[in-house]
Design a protein around this nucleic acid. Structure first.
Length: 272
DNA sequence: AATCATCCCTGAACGC
DNA sequence: TGCGTTCAGGGATGAT
């Protein structure tokens, strides 16, 4: 499922193909009109030039001429393709006859055109924490906030302490930092380890082109169908019952705030 | 204010 | 083999 590394990989791959192009039209499925509830105001992009392709957390941001932005959230199964698929939800027709297809089997993805910076319809984006691979991801601020009373994993998933961390990379970072997903009130030492783990894992995962899980149609792939490779580096996600690579104890799986949660019960002990 | 459950949606995995 | 059931999950939303 697309988290920061997958979204960043998408951005890097797609940007050279679209920046500078004019969106002549965005079309819906087949001959159907676009569902304006799921994909609001896409018509405003017609005739606009794509000036840049940026990213904030898990959101792709197409900067358009006329002070507009086209926001894309890939949800669980969204992605761009160069050819139409049975799950093409939107077709972006570009000048020069090229097209970009928004493929999204489970339809959890979001696409919208907004005034640049007007994110009030996207509260998670509006309140998004710092980028984990930027200087803005301050250890001091992170460690201070991490002393809070709530459980650490749901907090990471909220996008507030840091942006772009989803279920896979949250589990991986907590394993590397040796912190239990339900731990509260992190010590300075724990916060430092987690801060480092998030940076390292995100960096390595971006380098690997993200993670591609399973063999199905709903998994994450790059626009050309190429898979990422970071799944081979997963230590806990999808590894329930497998021995922990540090201590050999079988990895546990449970549910934490509605999300499948993988951890090593030996290395990641809940402090009282 | 913070935390939790519910909803959306459909392919994959599982069970009989 | 084939059908039906359950599961997965990011983020918005409503509830607690």
């Amino acid at each position: 499922m697309p988290e920061l590394p997958e979204v960043e990989t998408t951005r890097r791959k797609i940007a050279p193909l679209v920046v500078g192009k004019i969106i002549s039209c965005i079309r819906g499925e087949g001959k159907n009109p676009i569902d304006s509830h799921k994909y609001p105001h896409t018509k405003q992009a017609h005739g606009k030039q794509i000036e840049a392709l940026g990213r904030r957390g898990k959101y792709l941001i197409f900067s358009l001429s006329g002070g507009l932005e086209l926001l894309v959230h890939l949800g669980m199964t969204g992605g761009f393709r160069l050819e139409p698929t049975p799950h093409t939800r939107l077709t972006f027709e570009l000048d020069g006859g090229q097209a970009l297809y928004f493929h999204d089997p489970r339809r959890f993805g979001k696409v919208a055109v907004v005034e640049a910076g007007e994110y009030s319809a996207f509260p998670t984006l509006e309140k998004m924490g710092p980028e984990p691979l930027s200087e803005d991801f301050s250890l001091a601020v992170f460690a201070e906030q991490a002393t809070r009373a709530g459980a650490v994993k749901p907090w990471l998933l909220s996008q507030k302490p840091v942006s772009g961390v989803g279920n896979i990379y949250a589990d991986e970072a907590l394993w590397q930092a040796e912190i239990h997903p339900l731990q509260t009130r992190l010590t300075l030492s724990e916060a430092k380890r987690l801060h480092t783990a998030i940076q390292e894992i995100m960096h390595r995962a971006v380098e690997a082109g993200g993670s591609t899980l399973g063999t199905g149609k709903g998994n994450y792939r790059q626009h050309d169908g190429q898979a990422g490779s970071y799944q081979h580096a997963h230590e806990v996600y999808g590894s329930a019952g497998q021995p922990c690579s540090r201590c050999g104890t079988p990895i546990s799986k449970s549910v934490v705030s509605g999300r499948g949660t993988h951890f090593c019960p030996q290395c990641q002990v809940l402090r009282g």
